[in-house]
Design a protein around this nucleic acid. Structure first.
Lengths: 212, 212
DNA sequence: CGTTATCTTGATAAGTCTCAATGCAAGTGG
DNA sequence: CCACTTGCATTGAGACTTATCAAGATAACG
């Protein structure tokens, strides 16, 4: 319980220490690990990622955390959605992003409030299915396919910017289980791991059979 | 695999056999078990429940189903959201509901597209946390609190309209596990079960400690 | 009063978490 | 250039939780 308090305190401090985004519409860079401090009133505001990878983190009561999404270039997320559950947005790797007003005329296409909420709803809904009745192997297969689609447009060479614990918190598994299932997929010949970060999909159809 | 095919076929047939909602804005009744046939093009359309209880069901590839939400009087859900994942809306108990156009001026307050999507996003996001790192006991505690809030405005007497398998499909557990944890909560003195459907919350604070 | 559906309980097997140790690679200071 | 540290990733062993299969209890209903 004390540890829990400490972790929460550390979390609060980290959030407080992180720098603000600055003015609207201005692109900002984030160093690895840096926490994006969202404005108090986020109504109507959204963040668009232009480079790198961010994670949306939610602290749980037992001291663990849940990553509800990774954000890649082109992704947009509403600030209010993140704040509603004490979430923070943190840089997984060196990143760039822009805070903007969804109701402003210069927000760009597909960035109006209904558009952003619609796409977010679809994304979150997908995660309900991901977390529901899938076992570790199925979750990991689905994850790799998702990363392939989002990071390399469906290509078989994917470089994962996030760590094993990050993947674990995203799939709601322990890092060890993630690791074991990576190993198993390699042993089964479905993927290859040239490095811990680099994944080569050898048998996409099999992965889809498992993960869908 | 054959069973799977049969179940899917049965599902399709059931959907086809169910009656359509009829014209927009007209309230319709549903008998227990009846499936609501959503219009092919659901863009901009939503369903508002006025009486009873409906469930949003999604068939899984292995023949099981996932219930992504229960709908009670006052609840609104977008048709496109349900159709996007092959979902159906089925009556858990005798129910009434109205199909309406979210963009129409007479849709009523808090029923515009952004409003509906915002509230749905919050609801689905909550389910991600429900399904993520919670064990069976925690899920059931959270479920009972949710039902108390939604069905009896936070009161301690709740009459659950849905069956144990329905609850199981909602929490992504087996019916047996749901049942065992009901029994356990009773044994621990946190709830009482005057009947299978009726739940009395005896120790709300303890339930919240477990479920939050 | 029998029939049927649903709920509950029991035993076993499978999957995942936890704790612990080991392996590996990048960076650091001598 | 090399030992050392440090942070991840991986592997192993055991405990615990949940699913599955099977049987029994209860309640609804004609």
């Amino acid at each position: 319980m004390l540890i829990q308090r400490d972790m929460q305190a550390a979390h609060q401090a980290a959030v407080a220490a992180s720098r603000s985004i600055g003015s609207l519409g201005q692109e900002r860079g984030f160093r690895r690990g840096q926490i994006f401090a969202a404005p108090e009133r986020g109504e109507g505001l959204a963040l668009r990622v232009t480079a790198g990878c961010l994670r949306v983190c939610h602290p749980l009561l037992d001291g663990r955390r849940q990553i509800t999404d990774f954000l890649f270039p082109g992704d947009v997320i509403g600030i209010a959605e993140v704040r509603a559950h004490n979430g923070t947005i943190e840089a997984v790797s060196q990143s760039r992003a822009t805070l903007f007003d969804m109701d402003a005329s210069d927000a760009g296409h597909a960035s109006s409030q209904p558009d952003v909420y619609r796409s977010r709803l679809a994304a979150v809904q997908s995660r309900v299915f991901m977390l529901g009745h899938k076992n570790a192997r199925e979750k990991l297969a689905a994850f790799l396919l998702e990363m392939s689609d989002r990071l390399s447009d469906g290509g078989s060479e994917v470089r994962l910017p996030m760590s094993r614990p990050d993947i674990a918190d995203y799939l709601c598994l322990s890092p060890e289980t993630v690791c074991r299932n990576f190993t198993q997929l390699v042993a089964d010949g479905l993927i290859a791991l040239p490095g811990a970060q680099a994944v080569r999909i050898l048998h996409r159809a099999a992965l889809e059979f498992i993960g869908r």
